[in-house]
Simulated assay, not measured.
Amino acid sequence: MRATKHAVPRARRGRGLGMGGPLALVAVGLLVCVALGLTGVSGAGSGQPAGAAAGATAQSMPTTADGPDGATPSAVPPSPTAPSPSPTPSTGTASPSAPATSKPSVASKPSATATPSPSAAGSARTAAAAAAQAGRIEPGTSYQGVATSYDAADGNGACSFGPSGDLMIAAMNHTDYETSRACGAYVRVRTANGASVTVRIVNECPLPCAPGQLDLSHEAFAKLADLSVGRLPITWTLLSPGEPDGMSVRYKTGSSQWWCGIQVIGHRNPVAALEVRTAGGWRQLTRTDYNYFLSPDGGGCGGPIRVTDIYGEQLTVDGIALRPDVVQSTRVQFARH
């Protein structure tokens, strides 16, 4: 009986040990799986965003570094506002010291070696000034049109220069007259057969005179063809002649300290602007179609005058008295071009 009682507990203990072993193995296996699972999650999330981890299922991640500095390329595209550093000339690799916000080389200031020589700079400034000031009639440009003729009488016209003893003159078409900008310009006129004449613009040829058309005095037209021709195809270009000795200035009739009109006469090159000196500095006056520059409130009337030609040259004249309708010599002249 004792043996039987002892045998039963042993059997039960044996069965308990037999089941405990597998259970322990199962528990250990579960712990290993959990550990491996945790390790896998940690590896998938390190060094890249979740999107990159998901994308890694489609292709394997590189095992070697492909970047220029030995770093694994990021799956995130570079920001367009922060360009990558430009490579250094010596190695071609990314410069670690270059800031992400550095400006491209094209935006940098030019070096001193790129500065033109004084003579070249002067020519560039002259060309730029001529292009900016010339208006419709530009130096060095050949224009096509037609020549007609008119009776110039004493040579006076819309430019208000007054009578002229030299009748080699012309009226500029309304468009190219450009509110008297063409007044005083010297123009070389040529025909297809080689005949030519130089005329000074003293008048305006109103519409329907077309752009490019010049209405020559009878005397000037006769240098090119017989007056019976009527209309003659021509080309013409602006000149900067050597004839004029000095410019003159004239105040318009009725000018005073309260209002004045100022005109320049005998200038070698077309006048682009006229300024008077006031208490606030130089003041540019408005040009009229009858070739006077007006100061409607009298500012600067009787004071220094600064005249600019289409090449950008400026001449300052002082000592011109406020004497209406009197031509006063300045003894200065624009340079020849």
Results as ranks from 00 to 15, higher is better:
residue 21 G to F: 10
residue 313 E to A: 11
residue 144 Q to C: 15
residue 269 N to L: 15
residue 67 G to E: 04
residue 1 M to C: 11
residue 118 P to G: 05
residue 197 V to D: 01
residue 242 G to I: 12
residue 259 W to T: 09
residue 87 P to D: 04
residue 108 S to T: 14
residue 233 P to C: 09
residue 102 S to H: 03
residue 30 L to M: 02
residue 89 P to L: 08
residue 186 Y to L: 10
residue 330 T to D: 05
residue 143 Y to V: 04
residue 44 A to F: 13
residue 2 R to V: 15
residue 243 E to R: 12
residue 18 G to E: 13
residue 106 V to K: 07
residue 137 I to S: 11
residue 155 G to W: 01
residue 63 T to R: 06
residue 141 T to Q: 11
residue 76 V to L: 13
residue 298 G to S: 03
residue 171 A to K: 07
residue 248 S to L: 02
residue 130 A to C: 13
residue 279 A to D: 12
residue 307 V to M: 01
residue 22 P to L: 14
residue 179 T to Y: 07
residue 295 S to A: 02
residue 192 A to K: 05
residue 159 C to M: 04
residue 291 N to T: 15
residue 312 G to F: 02
residue 119 S to A: 12
residue 249 V to N: 05
residue 30 L to P: 06
residue 207 L to Y: 14
residue 193 N to D: 11
residue 247 M to F: 08
residue 181 R to P: 01
residue 70 G to F: 00
residue 306 R to W: 09
residue 294 L to F: 00
residue 31 L to Y: 00
residue 125 R to H: 01
residue 318 D to A: 03
residue 164 S to C: 15
residue 65 A to F: 03
residue 183 C to L: 13
residue 103 K to R: 13
residue 257 Q to F: 12
residue 251 Y to F: 01
residue 322 L to E: 01
residue 100 A to C: 04
residue 136 R to V: 07
residue 162 G to S: 01
residue 50 A to H: 09
residue 283 R to V: 15
residue 201 I to H: 08
residue 181 R to D: 02
residue 31 L to H: 02
residue 53 A to D: 10
residue 225 A to P: 04
residue 283 R to D: 13
residue 256 S to Y: 11
residue 228 S to I: 13
residue 51 G to W: 14
residue 217 S to E: 06
residue 167 L to S: 10
residue 266 G to D: 07
residue 150 Y to A: 01
residue 260 C to T: 02
residue 262 I to L: 12
residue 166 D to E: 12
residue 66 D to S: 06
residue 334 F to D: 09
residue 65 A to T: 10
residue 33 C to F: 07
residue 52 A to Q: 04
residue 225 A to H: 02
residue 134 A to D: 06
residue 150 Y to E: 09
residue 104 P to S: 15
residue 40 G to L: 15
residue 209 C to M: 05
residue 107 A to G: 09
residue 28 V to R: 11
residue 152 A to H: 04
residue 135 G to P: 06
residue 163 P to W: 11
residue 201 I to S: 07
residue 55 G to N: 11
residue 76 V to M: 10
residue 46 S to D: 12
residue 55 G to Q: 14
residue 246 G to A: 15
residue 196 S to P: 10
residue 70 G to S: 04
residue 171 A to I: 01
residue 269 N to C: 11
residue 32 V to W: 06
residue 66 D to K: 02
residue 21 G to C: 08
residue 94 A to G: 06
residue 205 C to F: 15
residue 275 E to W: 00
residue 256 S to I: 00
residue 322 L to P: 06
residue 249 V to A: 04
residue 13 R to I: 01
residue 44 A to P: 09
residue 308 T to F: 05
residue 94 A to L: 10
residue 130 A to F: 07
residue 323 R to H: 08
residue 254 G to H: 13
residue 14 G to I: 07
residue 161 F to C: 03
residue 234 I to W: 08
residue 275 E to H: 05
residue 202 V to L: 12
residue 207 L to R: 10
residue 26 V to T: 08
residue 83 P to Y: 05
residue 145 G to N: 06
residue 205 C to L: 14
residue 132 A to I: 11
residue 260 C to M: 00
residue 181 R to L: 00
residue 203 N to S: 13
residue 217 S to I: 00
residue 286 T to V: 01
residue 287 R to S: 13
